[in-house]
């Protein structure tokens, strides 16, 4: 009985925690952009780890960013994805990857100003 209830507690906390299991990297000046403020998203399943297979092949090419860099990347797993990863000891590991592109370079600013503004 005690065993059953602690298992339930573990599962409940796993459910809670995995709901927000995510790993994120942001550029320090995060001016990321995605359609309508949303990140670009793709879901991928890694099979057999780092050098193994992935539904996205060897990696995902963020062509949406055109020539711009990535501004942020987040990897998220929901409860089901975490469970599958757990039960297959990480051999099959699905995740949702979200990313924002950096803004392209600023358009040049035509200006008749001097090189340095006066300190004021």
């Amino acid at each position: 009985m005690a065993h059953g209830s602690s298992l339930a507690a573990v599962l409940a906390s796993a459910a809670l925690l995995s709901g927000c299991a995510s790993y994120r990297i942001y550029a320090p000046e995060f001016d990321g952009v995605g359609p309508g403020g949303q990140p670009y998203r793709y879901s991928s399943t890694s099979v057999l780890g780092d050098q193994g297979l992935s539904t996205e092949g060897s990696g995902y090419n963020a062509t949406q960013c055109r020539n711009a860099d990535l501004a942020a990347v987040a990897v998220r797993r929901n409860f089901g994805q975490s469970l599958l990863t757990l039960f297959t000891l990480g051999i099959v590991s699905p995740a949702m990857v979200e990313f924002y592109c950096a803004k392209p370079p600023d358009p040049p600013i035509p200006c008749d100003c001097e090189e340095d503004a006066p300190a004021q």
């Binding site: 309508g36 403020g37 803004k103 600023d106 600013i109 100003c113």
Partner: peptide
């Protein structure tokens, strides 16, 4: 639908 102009970032005096 949404119209997103967040890549239109020109500015000048």
């Amino acid at each position: 639908r949404l119209i997103d102009i967040s890549l239109l970032i020109g500015r000048k005096p």
